[in-house]
Write a protein that binds this DNA or RNA. Structure first.
Lengths: 248, 248
DNA sequence: ATTCCGCATTGACGAGGGTCAAGCTTCACC
DNA sequence: GGTGAAGCTTGACCCTCGTCAATGCGGAAT
């Protein structure tokens, strides 16, 4: 029964009252009791204004955070001020996994617009995951997915040219937005050219020039932060062979 | 008692008969019974010849592998043949974490010299980790450490110049070798210039030229694969501010 | 021991993208 | 609504690193 139950529920989402984790972050098959257990662990969500830090590198690690609404970037900084954006996060995506290893966060998480997150106290999630095998498995999978994502970013940074990086970036954003029910080919960038550049290993001028170039070729339209993808196929051709690339 | 026991044992290594995981890969505090449980799960080690694949991208995921002896690279490949080395692994380090997310490996693991690995059947490790909290925690930490490492590689690929990358690479190798009891300043590279370049986002000629340059400046000596670090401080100055960089 | 092939080194050249600078737009904040 | 600062675009220039090529060296296999 329990096994069957799990299988049947596996495609369902958890509905937890306190936040919309059900969306993407925790689509595990759980029964009612397990769900309510989880609900007691997940703390009230927290709101952040644009520019606010969710956590900073070096701070003690206590919780993971799932984006409910809004948009975040994570970045690691070197002592001399160089900064590398390591990811852009949208609803349903998880931040803070880096903190587990040393009990300190190793990157900053910053809201790029007014946002809301669920706090998942890690210690309690950890013990809960001992009682709920599918939850444990789900955490292993989430962390593994992050590792795979990072490897693809490495591929992007190590092998691809500026145009390919930008194309991969746009397509990745597009794909993730459409997953969340937003338009795939018409969206607003939440981050600056400089932040895009930092993520892609390019300077902001190169980002700007490349976007202009794509526009001239009729592949996209650019109106400041408003982007429309016009010829998705051409963009895809550009990165043919570079796997799905980047992106959470 | 149990709690104290854990604390006291925390700095100890597991001694499991079948392989030398105790080294670095699983330094958890476990009592005797837990250790023997773990022992029954860890399969006999497997030997690979130089050049042999431990697993390939796309293959079904069943196990993690810990390096006992030898040296590995992991790499992701794009369809058009471009290849990105995502890490070099030495004894005690773990491979295969990427496979958890989709139940398929997403990278290749290749022995760079005759090597030996321990196979850790993941399903059994997973259920065992439910019974042994410290083991579960350790797995979370291992995966988190991999994420942190990957973020630092991103920083390297996104921000650093060729000389900085090579310096960071050499220092990282040096540090990991000395951790394992090898000489920190005198070692043999197990990988080709091309593989170094792939990892660092550089072409093999640039790797070669940069090593020659370092030698001319008296910072290192280069005799094919035999490297000696002469002026570690100068190398460190070169990457001042770039955090510990690279990894694995 | 010999041969061959893979790997490494080095040079010359060129291009992609970084740097510097100027001007413009937009948005946040008074 | 006005003002300033921040962000964006575009151009010119230059430098780092990639590309192409020639040569050399060493190790593996026979």
């Amino acid at each position: 029964m329990s096994e069957q139950n799990h299988t049947a529920l596996h495609t369902l989402k958890i509905s937890c009252s306190s936040c919309s984790l059900r969306e993407l972050c925790l689509p595990v098959g759980l029964n009612r009791e397990e769900m309510s257990q989880l609900d007691t662990v997940i703390r009230q969500s927290r709101r952040l204004k644009r520019g606010e830090y969710l956590f900073r590198s070096g701070e003690g690690f206590k919780s993971l955070y799932a984006v409910r609404t809004g948009f975040f970037k994570t970045c690691v900084a070197s002592q001399d001020g160089r900064e590398q954006v390591t990811g852009f996060l949208m609803s349903g995506e998880l931040m803070g996994l880096d903190g587990i290893s040393t009990n300190n966060h190793s990157c900053d998480a910053i809201a790029l617009e007014d946002s809301e997150v669920c706090e998942l106290p890690f210690g309690r999630m950890e013990s809960l995951s001992r009682d709920i095998p599918s939850l444990q498995h789900h955490f292993y999978r989430l962390m593994s997915r992050e590792i795979v994502r990072d490897q693809n970013v490495m591929l992007l940074l190590g092998n691809m040219k500026a145009e390919e990086r930008i194309a991969a970036f746009l397509l990745n954003l597009s794909q993730r937005l459409s997953t969340r029910g937003f338009a795939a080919n018409d969206f607003i960038l939440r981050m600056s050219r400089e932040e895009i550049g930092s993520f892609l290993g390019l300077k902001l001028e190169t980002v700007s020039r490349t976007l202009s170039k794509f526009q001239q070729q009729g592949w996209i339209t650019v109106d400041h932060k408003h982007i429309q993808l016009v010829k998705v196929e051409d963009l895809k051709n550009l990165i043919a062979g570079c796997i799905h690339a980047s992106g959470h």
